[in-house]
Design a protein around this nucleic acid. Structure first.
Length: 636
RNA sequence: GGUCGCGUAGCUCAGCUGGAUAGAGCAACGGCCUUCUAAGCCGUCGGUCGCAGGUUCGAAUCCUGCCGCGAUCACCA
């Protein structure tokens, strides 16, 4: 289904008068009534007009969905382009001649159509000026153009972030969080009810390592006494554990052990496993230390989440969920869907799905990661009865999710089909992947600090904040720093690997967050000046039909596209579409701003129109940036 | 080795549900501030869309093969 049609969803379509009087089957020209209010329909109107033209002119049946319509490319005159190659057979004429005939038909029968031209097999249709002006007048009156009200009903549950509690958040998590949060916002803006959930991996050998290290070398310190962020504090003990273990492993290897054996048999590993065992047995002292250390980590994480601007409706903890899934497995075994090996381990045969068999319970009855994930999927289903279960998880787990879905399907879970793995690519650094062992991990907090610092330096150097209070200035630095970071990450297609070049990420020129923020601030400044001169929204009471400048029309076309872009972004879970769209819009506006007077214009109607256009642009920029979790300042 | 993904300008990325002369930004070079914020605008330079076939009126886009890069194929999570 082409995305153009996908926008006609209940939340968006037919908001006002349903006054289209298209008569597809009758053999007479089609008329549209004057008050067509839904501008999203224009593609359909043209498509149906073309279908009628073909029917009447060439006695051939073409469904409107088959009519290929695209936006007219910049270098040609027109708004919408109909591809007429497919009709040249029906009319038994050259594409040019067909284009001329259909164009003429549209011009005569559709009141929206002003002019047209034909180049090769392309029919470029220009809509009338007042179509665009009416569009602006009407949509300016709407509070949130393109943004749908959230509909009640089954929610979409989206899991993201999903950290381990033994280490602070890093750049990889940042991409995850930004994607998750933005996709959630985009879905909400498209009318979906959304629940944001986090699954915290708070148990297991990794946190036991931190615990052990703290017991051994911590000397009773806490994040407060050490004056350190809680997640950093706990992370440091994890690092220390690994460091000490490495020494032991080296020693063992000298004694002739293989690396793997040496690791397993090292004293520290043995002790860590002992801590894990105690934890599992519910040893009070171990449990208490565990919950203390995790609390520290959460305080640290919360700070980072808050700064990034991400929040969750519900947080799941693996300590609560790690035993789930066994019931499902046992049930599956009883129903003969799963099978047991001689050693007592339980497996799922997936040969019919072209996957290898998957272990679900070890011979000692303990579960594996997959078992747990089956359980949490079921839990989440029971909690929400969701429409969809989304997981924002890196693409290294593609196979895991294929298997997860396959097993749930075998177990007869209807919701298996609603599980969607939003798989995103790795973040790479200029010198390769992030490796904690090599100290090339980019810490999330440090990263944000650096972005902010650079924003502050640049802003000061440009002399932009002379009349700002200190508080205002600090707020602006944070806004710009975060804007740069978020935009840099979100503008690339989630599915693809991305290269994070620190130097490029803090550039503020060109296709960057600050560039977009700047344009917004500039427009707001213009509007403030206008207000001083007595121009107030909605500006357009008595504006009548007049010639639109090329650039004005280009901007209107882009603004007009916003709902469609939003819908596409929601359908494909891609904030990048929104990012690229808003950049394009802002670039176009800047071109207009550069050489078109607004307040310096003499004709008051033009002033009013341009103010309205500017206001509307600022509003869409703000809306779009909000979907990316990026704030736009009033001044910068 | 099997499976999946990726390969577009010096660099980072758009475009990929087939359509016009493949677009942006950065970098380089050259212009534009006594006029609404120059974090801006305009211009120049830069491409055998990894390679080879195929389908089509038309292929960066779809199909096949090859080359290169990555992920994955755990009784790790």
């Amino acid at each position: 289904m082409p995305t153009i049609w996908a926008i006609f969803t209940p939340g968006l379509m037919m908001t006002k008068k349903q006054s289209i009087t298209i008569t597809k089957r009758k053999n007479k020209p089609v008329r549209f009534c004057r008050e067509i209010k839904n501008y999203l329909m224009i593609n359909q109107i043209i498509a149906e007009g073309v279908a009628d033209a073909v029917k009447i002119l060439y006695q051939a049946d073409v469904s409107p969905q088959e009519v290929q319509i695209q936006k007219t490319r910049k270098e040609f005159e027109g708004d919408l382009t109909v591809v007429v190659f497919p009709f040249s057979r029906m009319g038994r004429k050259s594409p040019e001649a067909i284009g001329e005939q259909i164009g003429k038909f549209l011009q005569e029968n559709l009141q929206e159509v002003g002019f047209f031209n034909v180049i090769k097999g392309f029919l470029n249709v220009s809509l009338k000026n007042n179509y665009w002006i009416d569009f602006l007048i009407e949509k300016l009156a709407e509070e949130k153009f393109g943004i749908s009200e959230v509909q009640e009903g089954k929610p979409v549950v989206i899991e993201f972030s999903s950290p381990n509690t033994n280490k602070p958040l890093h750049l990889g998590h940042v991409r995850n969080i930004l994607l998750g949060d933005s996709i959630a916002s985009i879905l909400e803006a498209s009318g979906r009810k959304v629940a944001r959930v986090n699954l915290v991996n708070d148990r297991g050998i990794h946190i036991c390592k931190s615990m052990l290290a703290w017991q051994k070398w911590g000397e009773g310190t806490t994040p407060e006494t050490a004056d350190k962020k809680g997640d950093k504090f706990v992370g440091d003990y994890y690092v220390q554990f690994e460091k000490q273990k490495k020494l032991q492993v080296k020693q063992k290897m000298l004694e002739g052990y293989s690396e793997e054996e040496a690791d397993r048999e090292s004293q520290l590993m043995q002790d860590a496993r002992e801590v894990l065992k105690k934890w599992e047995q519910g040893d009070p002292e171990t449990r208490s230390l565990w919950s203390n250390m995790n609390e520290w980590v959460y305080l640290g994480f919360d700070e980072t989440y808050k700064r990034i601007g991400a929040g969750f409706d519900k947080i799941y903890y693996e300590s609560d969920t790690y035993l789930l899934g066994r019931e499902l497995v046992k049930e599956g075994l009883e129903r003969g869907i799963l099978y047991e090996k001689e050693d007592g381990s339980i497996w799922c045969d997936l040969s019919d799905k072209k996957l290898s068999d998957k272990l679900l319970l070890r011979s000692d009855g303990t579960s594996v990661y997959m078992t747990q994930d089956l359980g949490t999927a079921q839990l989440r289903f029971d909690d929400y009865h969701p429409d969809k279960l989304l997981y924002v998880v890196g693409n290294e787990q593609n196979h895991h999710f294929d298997v997860l879905k396959a097993i749930l399907q075998k177990l007869g879970k209807e919701y298996a089909k609603d599980i969607i793995h939003i798989s995103y690519g790795m973040v790479e650094l200029p010198h390769g992947k992030m490796k904690s062992r090599e100290g090339t991990v980019v810490d999330a907090d440090d990263l944000i600090d650096e972005m902010r610092e650079t924003a502050a330096e640049t802003t000061r150097a440009l002399g932009k904040i002379e009349d700002f209070s200190e508080e205002e200035a600090n707020r602006l630095f944070e806004t710009i720093g975060l804007g740069a970071l978020k935009y840099f990450i979100l503008k690339v297609d989630p599915k693809k690997h991305m290269l994070f070049n620190p130097e490029e990420s803090i550039q503020f020129d060109g296709n960057t967050g600050p560039f977009i923020q700047y344009t917004h601030a500039r427009i707001r400044s213009l509007l403030r000046k206008a207000a001083e001169r007595g121009f107030k929204a909605p500006y357009l009471e008595n504006v009548h039909d007049f010639d639109l400048l090329h650039k004005e029309r280009q901007i209107l076309r882009l603004l007009h596209d916003f709902p469609e872009i939003l819908q596409q972004a929601a359908d494909t879970y891609s904030p990048a579409l929104v990012a690229n769209y808003v950049y394009e819009l802002v670039k176009e506006y800047n071109g207009f701003y550069q050489d078109t007077p607004v307040l310096r214009e003499e004709d008051e109607n033009k002033i009013r129109f341009r103010l309205a256009l500017s206001e509307f642009t600022a509003r869409i920029v703000k809306s779009a940036m909000q979907l990316l979790g990026i704030e736009v300042p009033e001044r910068m």
